[in-house]
Design a protein around this nucleic acid. Sequence first.
DNA 1: GGTAACATGTGATTTCAATCATATTCGGAT
DNA 2: ATCCGAATATGATTGAAATCACATGTTACC
Lengths: 172, 172
Amino acid sequence: MFRQGDTTKGIFFLASGGICLTRVTESGNSVTIYNAQTGDMFAEASIYSDHYHCDAICTAPSEVVRISKQAIQKQLREDTAFSEGITKRLAVQVQDYRQLLTLHALKSANDRVLLAVELGKLTGSVTQFANQIGLTKEACYRALRDLSDQGLLTKTGRGRYAPTPRSEDRLP
Amino acid sequence: MFRQGDTTKGIFFLASGGICLTRVTESGNSVTIYNAQTGDMFAEASIYSDHYHCDAICTAPSEVVRISKQAIQKQLREDTAFSEGITKRLAVQVQDYRQLLTLHALKSANDRVLLAVELGKLTGSVTQFANQIGLTKEACYRALRDLSDQGLLTKTGRGRYAPTPRSEDRLP
DNA sequence: GGTAACATGTGATTTCAATCATATTCGGAT
DNA sequence: ATCCGAATATGATTGAAATCACATGTTACC
């Protein structure tokens, strides 16, 4: 998509595929900054700088929408609702990332899986879920079984688990 | 400054000192979200939520300016430059968090420490550094020693390490 | 000067997730 | 209808980081 040092041409929305953002550090090593997945937006900060500070490389055939820098800047100045929407969206993203970081900070697989399920992260396949929370699928299945055995989770079907309702939550 | 769950009273500017933003997880662990240094602003995302979702604790005697939520909301509507500044700050934060997540996704202690040092995360104490990147200080010290032995890092002093410059960077 | 608190650093042991292996089930394509 | 690939699920082994333990160095304070 673009290279480190290129003049910024806008922000990007990844409709499908995969984009890897990498950056060459001062010591000359190339390091991964972010792996964008389907539905992600990236290079938001490029609105405010003249050149990209990382490479964006396709890791799979991808469909990408580019929104031009000029269009964004014009809209940000002229449309208050748009500006407010962008700001709020960024603020929410910050909170989401903090939540994800909190999750990743838990070392125990059981703790991590339990919290992740309680946060509603287990929607698709367990394989995806495992990848998202930084565990192998095997460790994930085992944690899910352990937590079900302990009564903290309830198995609602093949590959489906839900938090066991706490007694306080029950209504007459 | 404030505790997780307190009703939001505004955003903060750290004129001097140090503030550590931590979040207590359900299992009772305290994890570092952000280490604010002199000149940093923090709790920007609180503009759009009713309560703080982390603790802000002084790590040093600090001078802090609080800007009230009402004033912020008024200014966001009326001052374009101000609004732009806030948006930019949030965009940069999103990138920082993505970077931190990428860092936490590395399982090997050596890989993680090397990347973190290259990204310039080792500024203060190794203990703080270790906490920030999700390792114990012991694992951190060992990784730093390994990487120094391998020639990937250079020990510049007690508790001080820097990436070994790559040969390509040298100029005649 | 003395000492208390904390950072640096390393060695020994344990624990737990990664890895390897394998069986079963489900869904989509032929 | 059946063949194949992917997801689910679990057992055995291994390896690396956490934990425990301890020594030294540094800073701040009385």
